[in-house]
């Protein structure tokens, strides 16, 4: 016999999951199969898919390179202004990404960094490099967040034991900490990648959203809606749902097992 609380809570999860499922599922019934296939293999969709995946994978890779040491120091070390660093890192999660987009645009504008970068031949705004930078800053806070709790769960005692057995700091980090945090690192990579793929406003502003050049899938949805080309817009949306589904599926299957097994 289930308790009342159990029944109520389970019903709430079921009701709203069903709503969400119906909402997402409705996307798949709108376009005709023909229309879907046609838009899927159109020049625009293939280009948007390619741009989205290549920029997101690169951005996610750079995010992880930065997020692992950042999260580890937040979790293990005491240093001045630590709580300030933590708050600043969390900040972009709370405000809309367009704020980040406009800020990036301003700092990359003529007055500041932009002049210098341009003089050494680096163009960021209106290029795929701009897309990657926008995705990087949008996704970084999420990666740091997840990795921070991951490292908090890794028992420092294992690290102490390793050190006391004569292993150096780097060897310990590489052979003890990272393997123990494997699940969390995997989970945050997937979430980071998903976040990079889904970035819209910041990527639109910094990348420019030019057709076939800096048009990512989320921009393709917006662009085709504005043209009244519903088939293309929905196809891009379905592609995003499918990519997210694969990401989340992989996450559920592998990452959580590892986190549970971590002890």
């Amino acid at each position: 016999m289930r308790s009342k609380l159990e029944i109520i809570f389970i019903s709430i999860s079921f009701i709203f999951t069903t709503f969400l499922f119906i909402i997402i599922g409705s996307l798949f019934v709108i376009p005709s199969p023909q229309g879907f296939v046609e838009s899927l293999f159109s020049n625009e969709m293939m280009s948007a898919l390619k741009i989205t995946l290549s920029t997101s994978i690169l951005a996610a890779f750079f995010v992880m390179l930065v997020a692992v040491p950042t999260a580890y120091s937040l979790s293990r070390y005491q240093f001045p202004l630590k709580s300030l660093v933590k708050s600043i890192l969390d900040l972009p999660m709370a405000f809309p990404e367009i704020v980040l987009g406009i800020a990036l645009l301003m700092i990359l504008g003529d007055q500041f960094l932009g002049n210098f970068l341009e003089s050494i031949g680096i163009n960021i705004v209106f290029t795929t490099a701009g897309i990657i930078i926008a995705q990087f800053f949008v996704a970084l806070p999420y990666a740091v967040r997840i990795l921070y709790s991951t490292f908090n769960y890794v028992n420092p005692r294992f690290e102490f034991v390793s050190r006391s057995l004569g292993y150096g700091e780097f060897e310990t980090f590489k052979n003890i900490t990272l393997p123990l945090a494997k699940g969390g690192i995997f989970a945050s990579s997937v979430v980071t990648l998903a976040r990079c793929i889904g970035t819209f406003a910041a990527v639109l502003l910094v990348g420019g959203g030019t057709y076939l050049k800096t048009e990512t899938l989320p921009i393709a949805i917006y662009y085709n809606l504005s043209l009244g080309n519903i088939d293309n817009a929905i196809t891009a949306a379905i592609l995003l749902v499918l990519i997210s589904f694969v990401a989340i599926f992989v996450l559920e299957k592998y990452a959580y097992q590892n986190i549970e097994g971590m002890g």
Binding site: L204, G208, G209, T210, Y211, T214, I219, Y222, Y223, S226
Partner: peptide, 8 residues
């Protein structure tokens, strides 16, 4: 850039 929105 060919901007998809005029505000850009």
């Amino acid at each position: 850039v060919y901007a998809p929105t005029v505000n850009q």
